[in-house]
């Protein structure tokens, strides 16, 4: 394809995998650079702000726990939007997006669970409780693992995409449960303190590093997702080329 035919004029042009690969190649260095800068600023703020009068030094765990928890839900929401793209609009890249978001979302969910546990032990006196918030996030982690396993278990990529999309949309019911579990049930986990009606309940001293780290982790998520999607397109291209070569060899 020529440079002119690869130009992206509208959002629907991204449906073309070749155009998407070209765009990803241009965007990735900038996204990776922005991620590195945000992490440098965020980590500096994490270790230069004061300790909390109640939590002490453990408040610094919040600067990675909260962004990881947000991204665990955002990753699944990206997958749910992609599942709609697969089932409703049959967008050729929707299945690629859903498949590539799963391992990244699972990684951030594992990080949220681990750091939550490491914060819980000194603050609550326990590593784990089966309260609604912790349990629903653990179920989210299992759902990510199940979807990764499903994609790997099925040889037919088209069928795997449709089955995964249906399961992703069914599992999306867990996202509002995670978000509102602290309001609906009595939980050891505290209610929302950043994203809530009436504004943030956190002092700007702690809010600043938290938001910069959230931005850094979000940029990391999209950098990894974009790179993984490009690689998945290459993987499918390789499979198509091998099939073509095998057909050519069989007919020769």
């Amino acid at each position: 394809m020529s440079d002119r035919s690869l130009a992206i004029r509208s959002f629907t042009d991204l449906a073309n995998p070749t155009r998407f690969v070209a765009l990803a190649g241009r965007l990735l260095p900038w996204l990776a650079g922005l991620t590195a800068v945000l992490f440098a600023v965020g980590l500096t703020l994490c270790f230069t702000t004061a300790a909390d009068y109640q939590q002490g030094e453990t408040v610094r765990i919040m600067y990675i726990h909260v962004p990881a928890a947000w991204l665990s839900m955002m990753g699944y929401s990206v997958m749910a939007a992609s599942a709609l793209g697969t089932l409703v609009w049959r967008h050729p890249l929707a299945d690629v997006a859903a498949k590539c978001a799963a391992p990244i979302g699972a990684g951030f969910t594992a990080l949220a669970l681990i750091t939550g546990s490491l914060w819980g032990k000194p603050m609550w006196g326990t590593w784990w409780v089966w309260d609604a918030r912790l349990t629903s996030v653990f179920i989210l982690f299992l759902m990510y693992l199940g979807l990764i396993a499903l994609n790997r278990a099925m040889d037919d990529a088209g069928r795997a995409a449709k089955v995964s999309a249906v399961l992703i949309l069914v599992g999306f019911v867990n996202i509002p449960i995670i978000k509102f579990s602290v309001d609906w049930w009595n939980t050891l986990h505290q209610p929302a303190s950043v994203l809530r009606l009436g504004g943030s309940a956190i002092d700007p001293e702690f809010l600043r590093p938290l938001l910069v780290m959230a931005l850094a982790f979000t940029c990391l998520f999209f950098t990894l997702h974009l790179a993984a999607m490009r690689t998945e397109i290459w993987r499918r291209r390789i499979a198509a080329m091998r099939r073509q070569a095998a057909r050519g060899a069989a007919s020769a």
């Binding site: 030094e57 453990t58 610094r60 765990i61 951030f108 594992a110 681990i114 750091t115 000194p122 990391l220």
Partner: peptide, 13 residues
């Protein structure tokens, strides 16, 4: 606990 949390973040990232 803080060091272990940042270590986990580093390993997973």
């Amino acid at each position: 606990y803080v060091a272990a949390s940042y270590g986990a973040a580093l390993i997973i990232s």
